[in-house]
Nucleic acid binder design. Structure first.
Lengths: 218, 218
DNA sequence: TTATATTTTTAGAGTAGTCTAAAAATTTAT
DNA sequence: ATAAATTTTTAGACTACTCTAAAAATATAA
């Protein structure tokens, strides 16, 4: 049986490797989980023992096949629960992360199958992130972070790659949500901030915000 | 903050005192939780420390007001989740206990408020057991265990007081479910077993089964 | 009421996870 | 290529919970 702490480590390793690719460092995991590098080292030994990761001391870590399956399944559960919380219970998209972090650890394959049916097999969660299939496929989204677009490109916001309350509340304040049409007007080279147009209104956002907005060019 | 283990102890103490009344013994708790009396003794000290129980060594234990509030809230969550699983996800009433035992520990008052609304404020769970209100009231049901009825009494099954798969599956096999009309035909004094009539068919059940069937006399 | 049985508590130890401090390995910079 | 900085691991300790075995308290029965 896998423990709650182990599940959180697998999830962290998956999340980092989806963002950066390649081997994952001890410090990166410590940072993601909010613990010490020493604790991570300890845990990596246990996960290695259980064949959930491939790990050589000082050389970084990657998920084994079974570890990846488990991690993707947790991600699937997280995103299905977020969809349930927003679509069925009426939560705001900025309020669901913490509860979903608890719900994702409930152990019952039957429950998730039925939840998926109840939600009518959603492909994307309320943040536009793809929900892995039961088979472990993560549908690709064909989107580009806003900060990588060229000036004068027009597109539509398909999702956000950060699930933090402050960030999502700020987007709401900017009138940015999924489906919003957006035009990139100007890139300021000094601080990499951007001028954008939304609903015929000009706005200015930082690079930190822009890089988490996923755009489909139209 | 309250831990998962602590929640399970509070729940066990509540459950025993609802069934038997009065002080709860160390052994009864050990038995309910499936652990050793030594572990229970240890934990009682911690719960006492946190003012969740009233406890004197060797003298049994009862919940404090705050302990009782917490325990009733867990019971409320358990029964709301069971209702969700059966009414919304289509689980059978015999399949939901284990999953609800996990879900009852999710920490979010907002989640339970919204779930209650989503389910349209149910008063009873799929086993006919009353769902405590947000304020901690447990509605009384005015029912009698079948084995306490007098011979030739007619009534309707309003609920069951045991949530175990084997038991519920057996009831289903007997064509017994909530709402079923039932007549007590005969009590066998030798083994306290009962003859009953359901849908014009005579059947015979043990006292162990009968005592968990809650009847409203008609 | 004194012996016996039962229940409960204490003592000591083990596991899973966490921490800080220090040692070891690796990377970076001169 | 060696020194300095950074990263990672080890060592030792702490908390929460569990266990078995033994001691202490309580209940029961002759």
């Amino acid at each position: 049986m896998i423990t709650l702490a182990e599940e959180n480590y697998l999830k962290a390793i998956l999340s980092i490797s989806l963002n950066e690719g390649g081997k994952v460092s001890t410090n990166a995991i410590a940072n993601e989980i909010g613990t010490s590098a020493a604790s991570v080292s300890d845990m990596l030994k246990k996960l290695q023992e259980k064949k959930l990761i491939k790990y050589k001391k000082y050389k970084g870590v990657e998920l084994s096949e079974s570890g990846q399956n488990k991690a993707i399944n947790i991600l699937r559960k997280h995103r299905l629960w977020e969809t349930f919380l927003v679509n069925k219970l009426g939560f705001n998209w900025s309020e669901v992360h913490d509860v979903a972090e608890q719900l994702e650890h409930i152990q019952s394959a039957e429950l998730i199958d039925r939840l998926d049916i109840f939600l009518e097999h959603p492909k994307f969660d309320p943040h536009g992130e793809p929900i892995p299939t039961k088979e472990g496929e993560i549908p690709s989204t064909n989107t580009t972070p806003l900060n990588e677009l060229q000036v004068n490109t027009k597109g539509k916001i398909m999702g956000v790659s950060l699930d933090e309350k402050d960030f999502l509340d700020y987007l709401t304040k900017l009138n940015i949500t999924i489906g919003t049409e957006i035009t990139l007007l100007e890139k300021i080279s000094f601080d990499k901030s951007l001028s954008i147009k939304i609903a015929n209104t000009k706005q200015h956002i930082s690079n930190d915000v822009a890089k988490h907005l996923l755009i489909k060019i139209s």
